[in-house]
């Protein structure tokens, strides 16, 4: 036995409300992050990620309340990312009951934030989100890091940045391909392979899951975990189906 590969549903949350989430017909309130989180807990998801896309200050307070209520209701680890700027933001989110905090833009602006957070809370609490977009230089593929949901190039190479955040103390990398995100055509396997080859911390594959075989491909390419949103939300694939499929394909998953 060794560490199980993880299946991680992701919920987009704005002002404490789910904006892109599961589509169970019997939900009383489809916008309530707690109710959705509990459904995924019942499906035996291995972890859960909340991506906070709130902009306003008031929205942040609602988010912390949603984190608190979720943490009280589910019994799996969960990560909150989006809009994290400082060690104080880490404290607020962890105190609300999240287990890990995701950072992207703030880490690019101030890489030492990763080190400060890892020193203070332990590297297992620090997830660096790397949003990468493919660029071609000659015939060779490379990936550039983007911020603001893939709009702004950070002028940093994804491979070098991943190695750097590992050295700074990141516990894992949430690796999203901005090219495949939302396409449902499969993860960027070359990106997954490239990054997981050069870091020893776990890589969570994100962006592009559309069917079961995509999950298998990502794990075979070196990912430790697969994140998916829409395939789970719309109920096309349930977490138990994904788990059984991956077990049949020879991946070690939680039983």
């Amino acid at each position: 036995m060794s560490l199980a590969k993880r299946i991680i549903p992701c919920l987009d949350v704005k002002d404490g409300r789910v904006v892109k989430g599961i589509n169970f017909l019997d939900l009383r309130d489809a916008g309530d992050p707690v109710e959705q989180a509990v459904r995924y807990d019942e499906q035996k998801a291995d972890e859960l990620i909340f991506l906070d896309i709130t902009a306003s200050h008031e929205g942040r307070a609602s988010m912390l309340d949603a984190i608190r209520r979720t943490a009280d209701s589910i019994f799996i680890p969960f990560t909150v990312g989006g809009g994290v700027r400082s060690v104080e933001d880490f404290i607020a989110i962890l105190n609300a009951g999240a287990d890990k905090v995701g950072v992207n833009t703030a880490a690019l602006n101030d890489p030492e934030l990763v080190a400060r957070a890892a020193d203070r809370f332990g590297s297992q609490c620090v997830v660096v989100a790397v949003d990468a977009r493919r660029v071609r230089v000659g015939g060779e593929a490379r990936w550039e890091v983007y911020t603001h949901g893939g709009r702004n190039p950070a002028g940093v190479d994804a491979l070098e940045w991943s190695q750097r955040v590992e050295r700074l103390g990141a516990g894992e990398i949430l690796l999203t391909s901005m090219d495949t995100d939302g396409t449902r055509a499969g993860y960027d396997l070359e990106l997954i392979r490239t990054i997981s080859d050069v870091v020893s911390i776990p890589v969570i594959a994100s962006g592009g899951a559309g069917k079961l075989s995509h999950l298998d491909e990502a794990l075979t390419s070196g990912a430790h975990a697969v994140l998916a949103a829409s395939i789970f939300h719309f109920g096309e694939i349930t977490v138990p189906e994904a788990r059984n499929y991956l077990a049949e394909r020879g991946h070690e998953v939680r039983r």
């Binding site: 036995m1 060794s2 560490l3 199980a4 993880r6 291995d46 332990g122 590297s123 297992q124 516990g171 894992e172 020893s200 911390i201 776990p202 430790h224 939680r254």
Partner: peptide, 13 residues
């Protein structure tokens, strides 16, 4: 030589 901390779901016999 593996990464520490050991983080994640692991089997217990």
């Amino acid at each position: 030589e593996l990464h520490l901390p050991h983080v994640g779901w692991n089997g217990v016999a």
